[in-house]
Amino acid sequence: MFQYEFMQRAFLAAGLISLIAPVLGVYLVLRRQSLMSDTLSHVSMAGVALGSVLHLSPVLCGFLFAILGGIVIEQLRRTYRSYSEVPVAIIMTSGLALAMVLMSLKTSLNKSFNSYLFGSIVAVSETQLIVIAAVTVIGLLFFVLLRRPLYSLTFEEDTAAVSGVRVKLLSFAFAVVTGMIVAAAMPIVGVLLVSSMIVLPSAFALRFAGGFASASVLAVATGMIGVFSGLTASYYTNTPPGGIIALILLAILLMGIGVKRIVKLGAKRRIAKTGTHSSQKTHQTTQTNQTLQEGALK
């Protein structure tokens, strides 16, 4: 499989994205913005379509649209403070509608849009690989260098603002980084499943990690397992990588939940058993005390 250059590129690109996408996912889930990645991927597709129609670089246009979408969502989030899902719905609908209309203007592009929708190993070009590498470096620098203010921001925005975190600026920077990562991940998993690579590993990690830092590490490990095994399976079965990666990550999540349930159930039974035993003991002690009291009364 690795004798093909496109497979080497695909694995390199997937490895890079799985380093950064799950970390972003941890923050998105905790900020109640899980659907943001899905929304931005739709917006990005509108950018790709516009780029094609105007004979500009579709990759660059998709990238810029995703960043712009992130900024607009953040602005709308401030307007609709009490309904945080409304901006996501507004932008997702707008992005998809725009993409549909633009795509209808250039029907010859429908085939290549398929690879954007579902992801394709061959879709990862040299240019995209460079873009993905740059995004990964920027993303890692962002999350590592700003981990302290990001932690405070994610826990509670008002306390973060009072303690000196520049909440608005950091939130907009976060939206820009989100847009960049989503646009970079699109060629691998496709528009429709981009959030699987961002949200599923973090959903798994947040159930099992003991602390904040370990949640990010576990999410990255889960993402890597899903992405590498998904790409391999996709190569041998000639199926879209996005679907396979999403299914593997979903299987990991479901297995994790199942194992945790079984462990919890076992622990509950043990406690219940010990509890019954000790309550029987208490009952016996009470009876003995009563007998002693009765004896004393007599």
Binding site: V26, L30, T154, F155, E156, T159, L206, A209, G210, G211, F212, A215
Partner: peptide, 10 residues
């Protein structure tokens, strides 16, 4: 304060 983000993994 604590009820804002009860699933916080810290």
């Amino acid at each position: 304060a604590a009820s804002f983000n009860s699933g916080f993994p810290s």
